[in-house]
Design a protein around this nucleic acid. Structure first.
Length: 244
DNA sequence: CGGTTTTGACCGGCGC
DNA sequence: GCGCCGGTCAAAACCG
């Protein structure tokens, strides 16, 4: 180790510190801006609900009731994959049987439809489609709840890809990368770091995750504010580098 | 041979 | 009523 090496390292540290300060300021600015927008949205939403209730028919209330049921059963998972891999395979530990594929209007990438095939009676369905904005991101939408336990755990890190953004949402619609703004202020969003499994173990092994601990803490700090989390989720997903 | 995937046909909801 | 669109069906092909 010579002096030149240390000088170079010190310079890098300074650059990183400056960048951290800049990001912190940007973070605060965005948080404030998002809080303001969130308040405005909630006001608009309350007004819209009040108007709808005033004009609402029984048919509308039936529709709402159906939507309420759907809300409790849906979740969406975003998975970053190798951009060269164009398959729609999401290995989540369950067995799925593909029963259809469609190209939808809003997205040139085909959408694949799956049913859980572990148990014939399992009602869970899954839709998988590539993100229109970033084709390296798979969007898996789960409908319903499994009436059985998972049988297989993903066998390796690569089976579960490098980074998963998990959106446990009570809303059944409009939760997509494009919608990671304030259009769904009640949506709860969490960032799930990659889970590593060893052999047939079903519990994730965190020993090899030390390199990600800083990211985990960073992500945890972001997730405290749901609005802020939603707006930054895409940026964080894109910034986490997969392991060598 | 049994389970899965592919893919065109079909169906139902919705807006005009 | 018609056309569009998303979701599902089902027969054929594929695969281990």
């Amino acid at each position: 180790m010579d002096d030149e090496h240390y000088t170079s390292l010190a310079e890098k540290v300074q650059v990183l510190e400056a960048e951290m300060k800049r990001l912190h300021k940007e973070n605060e600015r965005l948080r404030f801006s998002l809080q303001m927008m969130s308040k405005k949205f909630r006001l608009l939403q309350e007004t819209a609900v009040a108007v709808a209730d005033e004009n609402g028919s029984s048919e509308d209330s039936n529709k709402r009731a159906r939507n309420e049921v759907a809300k409790t059963k849906m979740s969406r998972v975003l998975i970053r994959t190798d951009p060269r891999d164009l398959s729609l395979v999401v290995k989540d530990g369950y067995h799925w049987r593909k029963y259809g594929q469609k190209v939808t209007k809003d997205n040139p990438s085909p959408r694949a439809y799956f049913r859980c095939s572990m148990f014939p009676s399992c009602p869970v369905k899954r839709k998988v489609q590539r993100c229109v904005e970033d084709k390296s991101i798979l969007v898996a939408t789960y409908e319903g709840e499994h009436n059985h336990e998972v049988i297989e755990a993903p066998s390796s890190f690569t089976d579960f890809q490098d980074c998963t953004i998990m959106a446990s949402t009570t809303n059944s619609h409009n939760f997509f990368l494009n919608d990671l703004n304030l259009s769904q202020p009640n949506t709860t969003l969490g960032l799930a770091l990659p889970q590593v499994y060893e052999g047939s173990r079903k519990r994730p092994c965190h020993d090899s995750m030390d390199n990600y601990r800083i990211n985990e803490e960073y992500v945890a700090s972001l997730t405290r504010d749901p609005n802020f989390t939603a707006a930054l989720a895409v940026a964080v997903a894109r910034s986490i580098v997969p392991p060598p």
